[in-house]
């Protein structure tokens, strides 16, 4: 069928658009405006930040994660609390009842105590959190991950951690005067091997 059809003879009016010179000029102008507008929209939201930045004028599209006079203290600690009950030495009779491959001398509950972490900056408490042990049997580590934005300058940072079954006092403490410059990432972790806080 296709070979029998010629557009002049068989295309009803309206299917083929007739482009006059005026329409052509209108389209060229319209296309140019459309292209510039589209490039502007795409480029402006994509990369204008880089190109608008100058020393004299602030970049209107930039995202200020921190202010120029701010730094960050990040605490990331993964530490297991002590067991909630003391381990108990098994008697000979108790050991005998157990299968040979399970005759451990000590009998220990799996559950561990929640860990408390307290942080103060310049004697002001900025963070206090009790982290429960992970795991279905509550025998995993307690996790802390906290970011604190602080002004630049010298600060006295103090961190205390309680990982034993008691109501008062702490098992680990760290206190130091630190100087934070703009954008500094001050990281506090806990060194499990040496059982003390470590800062970076």
């Amino acid at each position: 069928m296709r070979s029998e059809i010629t557009p002049d003879k068989y295309f009803p009016k309206g299917i083929e658009e007739k482009v006059t010179l005026a329409v052509l000029i209108r389209r060229i102008i319209g296309l140019s405006v459309f292209a510039i507008l589209t490039m502007f929209i795409l480029g402006f939201f994509s990369a204008a930040g880089h190109f608008l930045t100058s020393e004299t004028s602030p970049n209107p599209l930039a995202y200020h994660y921190l202010a120029e006079n701010q730094a960050m203290i990040k605490v990331s600690i993964s530490h297991s609390g002590k067991r909630i009950t003391e381990c108990k030495k098994r008697t000979k009779a108790e050991l005998k009842k157990l299968p040979p491959n399970m005759r451990a001398a000590m009998s220990c509950e799996r559950e561990r105590t929640p860990v408390l972490l307290v942080m103060t900056v310049n004697d002001e408490e900025v963070y206090r959190h009790v982290s429960r042990p992970k795991g279905l049997s509550k025998d995993g580590a307690s996790i802390f991950y906290q970011k604190l934005v602080v002004p630049t300058g010298v600060h006295e940072v103090s961190i205390q951690m309680r990982d034993s079954v008691r109501d008062e006092g702490y098992d680990f403490e760290y206190k130091e005067k630190i100087e934070l410059v703009s954008g500094r990432n001050f990281v506090v972790t806990f060194d499990e091997q040496n059982q003390n806080f470590k800062v970076y």
Partner: peptide, 10 residues
């Protein structure tokens, strides 16, 4: 060791 302060986002 630093926290980015100003970011030019896409």
């Amino acid at each position: 060791s630093k926290v980015p302060v100003v970011l030019n986002l896409d």
